[in-house]
Simulated scan of single mutants.
Amino acid sequence: MGNDGENRPDFPWVWLLPQLAVLAGLTVWGVAVYPSLPERVPQHIGPGGIDAWADKSVGAVFVPVLVYAGVIAVMALTSAAALRMRSEDELAPGERASSLINRPATRASALRGARATLQLGFCIGLSMAVTCAVMWRTEPDPHVPAWLLAAVLAPIALGLVPVLAVALRDRRESRESRK
């Protein structure tokens, strides 16, 4: 448990490791492929294929890696905030909770939510890897497969399942505790 004297759950560092592994893998992959990339690299992939190009530079090539690093930071901070927040069962009788904050029903629920959020972050990383597979091809005009959108969205959809399951369970627990 946490060491803040309130018996809060510790941050689930083990659940952050898969995200860091994907980030490291993307970084190594990008460094390895960078020298063989063409002078113009895809910058945006739209419904009709690649619709924006950039001159090859470290910034242009590593945009997906930098965006994913930001995603990791947001997911980790969100998870940490959920674990620090007072849960509904910790509020004093009659204490009003702000309607602007969606509090977890219990500390156990906060931990489940933090883990699900970190798992979603990992799935977003898998989606970034699919995107990099197209952006980092060494042909000067890479073909964009028709299945790319589905391949990018599938890991995110899969990552949303535990988030939604935790939210529904938390909602049910919250209702039951008010009875």
Rank of each mutant, 00 (worst) to 15 (best):
V161S: 01
A150N: 07
T106L: 01
E6N: 11
T106A: 05
I72C: 03
V14Y: 00
I72F: 01
S109Y: 00
G159A: 10
A60P: 04
R172K: 09
K56E: 03
Y68G: 03
L149A: 13
P140M: 06
P9K: 00
A24E: 07
S98W: 01
S174A: 15
T117P: 01
V63Q: 13
R169I: 14
R137L: 14
P18Q: 09
P155N: 04
R8Q: 08
V41Y: 00
W147S: 12
R86G: 00
I50T: 07
C132R: 05
P47Y: 11
V31T: 04
N7P: 01
A154N: 08
G2M: 00
K179T: 15
R115I: 15
V58Q: 08
A157P: 04
E173A: 12
R112D: 14
R107A: 09
E95D: 06
G125V: 06
P64Q: 06
R112Y: 04
S127N: 09
P145F: 02
N7I: 04
L164F: 15
A157F: 00
L120I: 06
L149C: 02
D55K: 11
A105L: 05
I50V: 15
A151W: 10
R112T: 02
I124N: 09
T106R: 10
A167V: 11
T78C: 10
G70L: 11
F11P: 10
R137P: 00
V163E: 01
R8H: 07
R96M: 06
L168D: 05
D170I: 03
D55G: 14
P12Y: 08
T117F: 04
V152M: 14
V22N: 13
R178K: 12
S109P: 02
C123E: 10
W147N: 06
N7S: 13
A157R: 04
S99R: 14
A154D: 00
S36R: 15
E88T: 09
T106V: 03
V134R: 08
M128Q: 12
V61A: 11
L77H: 06
M1S: 11
S174M: 12
R171D: 03
E176W: 06
R137C: 05
S79H: 01
A97N: 07
L20W: 02
D55N: 12
G46P: 04
V163H: 06
V22P: 10
A167R: 15
Y34C: 10
W136H: 13
P93K: 10
A24Y: 00
Q43V: 01
N3I: 13
I124E: 08
S57H: 09
L23V: 07
A150F: 13
S177H: 12
L26C: 14
V163A: 01
G94E: 02
V31P: 07
Y34M: 11
A110V: 06
V67G: 07
T27C: 06
L149F: 14
M75D: 03
R103C: 00
P93A: 09
